[in-house]
Design a protein around this nucleic acid. Structure first.
Lengths: 302, 302
DNA sequence: GATTGTATATTGTTGCATAAAAGAACAATC
DNA sequence: GATTGTTCTTTTATGCAACAATATACAATC
């Protein structure tokens, strides 16, 4: 439906923060794409991938250079200086946006029911020391993720979804319905190149990268995998529904610990699923997916 | 999850417009609740039902009185003056919000692909003659409904969902998956009072009110029915997903003509479904729902 | 005891000026 | 021929003050 994960982060006062954020986006992209040290970072291509124009990309690249993650020469553009490992991406994001922290804090407070279900903007501004503009942006983002909504009068209301302790189980139950069903849809089809790309990534994760990934990255990768597959149904409602669930699951994910062994098994199942999908045995694939989603994975990723 | 249908409409310059809007909300509520001429309109109760405080309700009531739809006496509050029929609710809404019109226009333009997928706010302001604030509000609403999203840079992108000609069929396919599945969920249960309320409403519609309802109202009533039922699964993700689909289906609904006979049959199926649900034969109910959703209904309501 | 009337405090909106960010076009370079 | 460098235009954000709407508390009335 709509790529919602690249939710924008403006409202930066300190110019360099914005640049570092962009740098982070670029590194994350490079990582996902499996780029290595020495690969060229072509402005237009990055811009297209991130739905931006070259101007902001440029800022990001300069920030990367300043952080020693990229090297640039006049008229020859930039080149990755280091393999974009998890660790490498961090420094660029060292100036973790305050907004990002506040976001996490709010999420935590809601999960722990430290906030009332109904709350005014003014109250939120006071509690978290935000300006109106900052709060606005934050609320927009949260609303887009679906766990808050305006009341008709003053104030906002947090969704039950997230505050409920059973939310995690409910998300699972929901996915267990839509994901296999999507695969079983009449027109389901996954282009070969998508399968190849997905297999590559899962393979990379399986073969060691897992150890170097943060929980957030692992989770993101899992979401991407499942979203790509559900996309095969060609029905955006399935995709959109999954994205929403995932954006809420992400909130829990941060508080779960990493069970690397479970994850490894998990990724193996992903690979197995790809094999079945490749041969177009969709009924079987749907069943496999159903089983995959039933498996209780401690870390809450799938 | 979150009651999103009472999307607020502020930004009114002409004070009375806001009041008339509120009046409309009150009448619509009275209608849904099956109130009759002579029934009291208790401020606090209306306020609770509409998630507002008494102050705005009061404005609405006064507007209703001015429109001759309610009678008020000092210290005795207001009383419905007429049965809240579809026609009666109209005059109060005569000053149909310009925003509402623009909303409809945009929806139409997107459906007809008269707008590019990516577009800037400035462009939208020019095209539809809106102030930034007005547009902002509109975009927020549309974003909440899920058919537009910000790009990371400048501009917004319309969802594929809505512009696709198959969207209608896709929405149907999606519902055909989640609604029966929700009923089949382990913990599914529908409180008796909900069944009673739903039956009452459907009964009312079946016994003639149908003829006097607008397409919009018929559609709304159908959505509410299905949403109440899916709520029985106790899993907000199902409910939320259905709400989203419905908010998009509503866009199509306005352009479909009314097939009163088909609708009558349709409502009969609703009543039948309630009977089965009442006896807790959920497996059977799920099957019934699946069939119900397969039936090709011209008017695109369900 | 519930509901309405009224006054007051709080909350959110609008428009505007300034500043910052992003996009687009084209020349320069590899 | 693709990519980078540079410049210019357009678009959007931000903070602020005046204003409008909503919420709340309590008294008055039924």
């Amino acid at each position: 439906m709509i790529a919602s994960d690249s939710s924008r982060q403006r409202s930066i006062k300190n110019g360099s923060e914005r640049a570092e954020h962009l740098a982070g986006l670029i590194m994350a992209l490079a990582r996902r794409e499996g780029m290595r040290a020495g690969d060229r970072l072509i402005e237009q291509r990055l811009a297209d991938a991130l739905d931006l124009s070259r101007a902001p990309i440029r800022l990001g690249l300069k920030a990367l250079e300043a952080a020693g993650l990229a090297r640039g020469e006049p008229h020859r553009g930039f080149v990755l200086a280091k393999n974009p490992t998890s660790g490498a991406a961090q420094p660029a994001l060292a100036a973790v946006r305050r907004n990002e922290q506040v976001y996490a804090t709010i999420a935590g407070d809601v999960l722990a029911s430290r906030l009332p279900a109904d709350i005014t903007e003014a109250e939120l501004m006071r509690r978290y020391g935000l300006s109106r503009a900052e709060l606005q942006r934050l609320l927009d983002r949260i609303a887009a993720e679906g766990w808050i909504a305006r009341l008709p009068g003053y104030g906002w209301r947090f969704a039950e979804t997230i505050s409920s302790p059973e939310a995690q189980a409910q998300a699972k139950a929901f996915r267990a319905v839509i994901e296999p069903a999507a695969i079983a849809q009449p027109g389901f089809a996954l282009p070969q190149e998508v399968i190849v790309r997905l297999r590559e990534r899962q393979q990379r994760v399986f073969e060691g990268e897992l150890e170097r990934m943060t929980i957030g990255e692992i989770f993101h990768s899992g979401c991407e995998f499942h979203e790509e597959i559900i996309r095969g149904a060609g029905n955006p409602f399935f995709l959109e529904a999954l994205k929403r669930v995932n954006s809420i699951r992400r909130l829990f994910a941060y508080r779960s610990f990493a069970d690397r062994d479970g994850m490894r098994r998990h990724v193996r199942e992903h690979l197995r699923l790809l094999d079945v999908l490749e041969t177009r045995r969709y009924t079987e694939a749907a069943e496999l997916m159903a089983k995959h989603l039933q498996r209780p994975l401690v870390a809450g990723l799938s």
